[in-house]
Simulated assay, not measured.
Amino acid sequence: MSMPEDGLHPDALRILPPAYGSGSLADLLPSVCAVLGVPGAVDVLGLGARLDGIDRIGVLLVDGLGAYQLPLAAPHAPVLADLAAGGRGHAGTLTAGFPSTTPVSLVTLGTGVPPGAHGILGFTVRRPDGQVLTHIYWGDDPDPRLWQPVPTWMETASAAGVRVTVVSRPAFEGSGLSLAANRGGAYHGAGDGPAVAAGMLAALREAPGPALVYGYHPDLDHFGHEDGVGSETWRRAARGVDRLLDEVVHNLPPGAALLVVADHGQLNIPDGGRYDMADIPALRDGVVAVAGEPRARYLYAADGALDSVLANWRGVFGADARVMTRDEAISEGWYGPVPPAHADRIGDVVVICQGRAVAVASGWEPDKAGRLVAYHGSVTAAEMTVPLLIVR
C-alpha cells in the first residue's frame, strides 16, 4: 500500500483524554448560544470576550481537519494558515469526544453533551435486536429522536428566536444522523465547497436578527481515508478548503463571525500496523459480534468468554492497544457519564488502538474498512485535537 508522509511529530501519538466541560466539542455550541443570548446557555469557552457585538455566528466544520494536520495543509492553504497563526483573530484548540469519529463528534457538537449522554457511541454500534447500526447510513430505524433523545442547541436556539440554518450536502437532509445532530435548523443543501460558502454567507446576510449558521464540508476527510493524509488528492482537498474559507472570511457581513472547527484528526497506518481478525484466529475466538471501527473496536463476547477474549486481544496487540471491559472504559470517563439505556451500545470489550495500529475486522464489516490509508477514532492527540479558529 502506498503510504504518503503525514508529517506527524511523535508527540502526536500521546494519549489525550477528552476535555468535557472545559474545552471539548461539547462546549462549543452552548458557548456560541450564550453569545447569541439564548436563555440557559453557558459560555464555557469564554467566547463572549472575543465576540462582543456579534449577533450572527457561522460555525464551519471541516471533516478531518485535525489541529496536527494544519502544518501539513498550510503550504496549500494560505488563508487557513493565516487563521491558524492567529493573524485574523483567535486560534486555539478543542478536543473531540471518544470515539474520535464523525457521527460521535457531529452529535457531540450539536447537542453540547458528551457521547455517553446523547448515545451516539461509535461509527457502528450493536442495536438491541442484534443488528449493527452504521450511523452514517442511518435512516429512520431506529427513530433518531428516540435513539438520540437530547435536544440539540439548534432546537433550543430556534425556540429562543435565533434564526438557525444548516448548510450541508443535499443527500444528508433528513438522515438519522442529521436529525440526531442538527435538528431544529432550516436545511440548505450545498453540494460542494463553493456552495457551502455561498449558503453560509447568504444565511448570515439575510438574518434579520440573531443567527446561527452551521456548515459542513467533508472532502478532506474523504481523501485522507482514501489516499492518505499528505497525498496529492488530500493536498488538493486542502486547497478546496482554503477557497471555501477565502470566500467566507473575506465576505463576512458586519456583525458576523466565523468559527472553524473539525470533528477529528487523522493518521496514516502502515501495513505492519494492521491486525486482521480474519488472519489471527485468537482474535476471533469467543467473539459473536463486532462493531465500532478499526481504531476503536467494539467486541461482543459469547457467554462465559469475556475473560478469554480480553486475554487473547491483549496478548496479540500488546502495547499497540488498550483492551478493556465496557465498565472499565465507562469508569475511566472516555464517554462522560453513560446512562444504563446507552451502555449496551458499547461493546463488552473496548479496544483502543495506540500508536499506528488498527484492528481490522474482515468478514464482519465491509472490506473497504481495512483498506483505507488514514484512520481515526482513537485517543491520540493527532485524532483528538481539533482547531478552533475565530475570525470576525
Rank of each mutant, 00 (worst) to 15 (best):
T385K: 12
V44A: 13
A19K: 12
V42P: 05
G58T: 02
A159I: 08
H376E: 03
T93V: 13
F317T: 09
L45A: 05
P30A: 07
P170W: 05
D348S: 07
A361Q: 07
A195I: 12
A41I: 08
G48Q: 09
A19Y: 13
R127I: 09
G292R: 00
A361C: 06
P142H: 11
V79W: 10
H118I: 01
V241R: 01
W138V: 00
A282G: 11
G304M: 11
P339Q: 03
L179F: 01
A160S: 14
G336Y: 07
G265N: 02
G333M: 10
P337H: 02
A171T: 15
F317M: 14
A238E: 12
I15K: 13
L267A: 08
L252E: 03
A262S: 02
G255F: 03
A198W: 04
A237H: 06
E365D: 12
Y187E: 01
L258G: 07
G184Q: 08
G87H: 08
V316D: 05
E332I: 11
L283M: 12
L177H: 00
P39N: 07
S2V: 15
D246T: 14
H264D: 07
L212E: 03
L25Y: 02
L45W: 09
D303V: 10
S175E: 00
L258Q: 04
G318M: 02
L8H: 07
V249Q: 03
H217M: 14
G130D: 04
P218F: 09
A84V: 06
R239T: 13
L16S: 08
A207G: 02
A329R: 03
A282S: 13
L28S: 08
S158A: 15
A74P: 08
G119H: 00
G240Y: 08
F172L: 15
D141F: 13
D140Q: 14
Y335V: 08
G110I: 01
I57Y: 08
S308G: 14
V35F: 09
L179A: 04
Y375I: 03
L245H: 05
A341G: 10
V196S: 04
G347M: 05
A77M: 03
P294K: 05
G255N: 09
A190N: 03
H118E: 01
V351R: 04
I280R: 07
P218M: 09
V323Q: 04
E206A: 13
V360N: 14
D43W: 13
L259N: 06
A85E: 09
V288I: 15
